[in-house]
């Protein structure tokens, strides 16, 4: 009596698949739309350009989704990105040892900030939104004091330092490799290791996780360090590209990243989220921004559109959750 007939099972399987992977469908739809309306869109050069441009925010977003899966927010990533970029430039990578320093120092500092986030939120169970917003001010304040509010610049950087953002390997920009590498590593981490399972468990039900022996505080700490490391890598790429930095350059990255994450269907209350879907969310944002440029829409309109995308994605996610009941 309560068995499902084969047809409806098939239908429900397909609809479940569509329900899970709709973010890719959206990406394809946007791309088809642009390809049919603009002859400049579907060219190798333009597509590589899109990929290169989304790499920075993409790497940030991958870190943010890991934290979000643990049911926490990281709104400090924009400031960590700034910190890493400024410190990287200040190391003046004009010779090989300094180049190494310009990569390691920002990573170390960024991860330290992430660890501070993770310790406060994991051990004290403080509200992650407030803590990371506060941390955003602390870090931004420190950076502004450090550079006295002035731009920082590096001339004559080493070719290697240039290559971090401007290099090509087999015709593909280096930041794209970095983005793909971070995405792959985090995807494997979240799906194939105990780490990923514990983080999902914490996000789904922290108390139950504690009672089955998951060291909750420790894994929350790790998640924040991963997120901070991502933001730091992005900061270094940005520094390598610009080399003349405004010390407020990272403002807003946390929300672009969060938009991509939400587009990727991650549950804001944690427990569920998918690194590959976030990757697709990043691509959607990039393609939309690219399309707006192709049609010569003003840059300032992008913020508006991104805001609309964020609100619509959250609203759709919320209505999907209502349906689940």
């Amino acid at each position: 009596m309560r068995r499902r007939d084969p047809v409806s099972r098939q239908v429900s399987r397909v609809s479940a698949l569509v329900g899970r992977e709709w973010v890719w469908l959206v990406l394809v739809a946007v791309m088809v739309l642009l390809a049919t309306t603009s002859s400049n869109f579907l060219t190798t050069g333009n597509l590589l350009n899109v990929l290169r441009q989304v790499s920075i925010v993409g790497i940030v977003a991958i870190g943010v989704v890991v934290v979000l899966i643990s049911s926490n927010f990281d709104l400090s990533v924009g400031s960590i990105l700034t910190l890493a970029a400024v410190v990287s430039v200040q190391m003046q990578p004009v010779d090989p040892p300094r180049t190494l320093l310009a990569i390691l120092a920002p990573l170390a500092l960024g991860c330290t900030v992430g660890a501070a986030n993770g310790l406060i939120i994991g051990l004290l169970r403080a509200n992650s939104i407030i803590v990371t917003v506060g941390m955003q001010f602390v870090v931004t304040g420190c950076v502004l004091l450090y550079v006295a509010g002035q731009h920082v610049r590096v001339d004559n950087a080493t070719p290697f330092y240039f290559a971090v953002s401007g290099g090509y390997l087999f015709g593909i920009p280096v930041p794209v490799y970095l983005f793909l590498l971070v995405t792959t590593l985090c995807h494997l981490l979240m799906t194939r290791t105990l780490f990923g399972r514990y983080v999902r468990a914490i996000g789904g039900n922290a108390e139950a996780a504690r009672l089955v022996g998951v060291p909750v505080a420790r894994y929350v700490l790790y998640a924040y360090i991963i997120s901070a490391a991502g933001a730091s890598v992005s900061g270094i790429i940005l520094a390598s590209r610009v080399r003349n930095l405004d010390p407020t350059v990272g403002i807003g990255y946390e929300f672009s990243a969060l938009t991509a994450v939400v587009l990727g269907g991650a549950r804001l209350s944690g427990g569920r989220g998918n690194v590959l879907h976030t990757f697709a969310g990043v691509l959607i944002l990039g393609v939309v921004a690219n399309g707006m440029r192709l049609f010569n829409l003003p840059f300032n309109m992008q913020l508006l559109v991104q805001g609309i995308i964020l609100v619509v994605a959250v609203a759709l996610g919320a209505s999907a959750k209502v349906d689940e009941r």
């Binding site: 105990l194 514990y198 468990a201 789904g204 039900n205 009672l211 427990g271």
Partner: peptide, 23 residues
């Protein structure tokens, strides 16, 4: 206090562990 409602039956069963060896 016990269930991870978003997770599968399988994952709910195999979850308890030492909490070590995350990688």
């Amino acid at each position: 206090q016990a269930l991870f409602l978003q997770m599968s039956v399988e994952e709910n069963i195999v979850l308890p562990g030492s909490g070590r060896g995350g990688l």
